[in-house]
Computed example of a mutant assay.
Amino acid sequence: MPRPSRHRPPVSRLSRAVLRRFAAPRLNMREDYEKVRRLQRQLAALPAARYRPLDRQILAEDGSHGIPVRVFRPKEQRRRELLLFFHGGGWVTGDIESYTPACATMAELTGCVVASVDYRLAPEHPFPAGLEDCLRVARLLLDDPARAGVQDAEDIVLVGDSAGGNLAAAVSLRLREEQARCASRQILLYPVMHWDHDPQTSPFASVREHGQGYRLTSTEVQDYLDLYVPDPALRQDPLVAPLMATDLSGQPSTLLISAELDLLCDEGEAYGRALAAAGVPVRLHRVDGALHGFITLPRFSRPLREAYEVINAFLDEPDRSP
Rank of each mutant, 00 (worst) to 15 (best):
M1Q: 12
P4V: 09
H7V: 13
P25H: 11
P25A: 09
R26Q: 14
L27G: 05
E31M: 11
D32G: 07
V36T: 11
R37D: 06
R38A: 14
L43A: 15
L46H: 14
P53A: 10
L54F: 12
D55S: 15
R56L: 14
A60I: 00
A60E: 01
G66E: 15
V71K: 02
R73V: 08
P74I: 04
P74S: 09
K75A: 13
L82F: 00
L84C: 06
L84H: 02
G89K: 01
G90N: 04
V92C: 00
V92Y: 06
G94R: 05
I96Y: 06
T100A: 14
A107N: 02
V114T: 02
A115N: 01
R120W: 06
R120G: 07
L121C: 04
A122S: 15
P123Q: 10
H125S: 11
G130T: 01
L140R: 07
P145Q: 11
A146W: 13
A148W: 02
A153D: 09
D155I: 06
D155H: 07
D155R: 05
I156Y: 03
I156K: 01
A163M: 04
A163F: 03
L167Y: 02
A170C: 10
L173M: 11
R181F: 08
C182N: 01
I187T: 00
Y190H: 07
F204I: 06
V207M: 03
Q212Y: 14
L216Q: 04
E220F: 05
Y224S: 05
Y224F: 15
L227F: 08
V229T: 06
P230S: 11
D231A: 13
P232I: 08
L234K: 07
P238D: 09
M244S: 14
T246V: 12
L248G: 02
L248N: 04
S249T: 15
S249V: 12
S253E: 13
S258I: 00
E260D: 14
E260V: 06
L261F: 04
L264S: 01
C265K: 04
D266R: 01
G268C: 07
E269R: 02
E269L: 07
A270E: 02
R273S: 08
R283D: 13
D288T: 09
D288H: 10
D288I: 07
G289L: 00
A290D: 06
I295Q: 00
I295L: 14
P298V: 08
S301M: 12
L304E: 03
A307N: 00
A307Y: 02
E309Y: 01
V310M: 09
N312L: 13
L315F: 09
D319K: 12
S321N: 11
P322F: 11
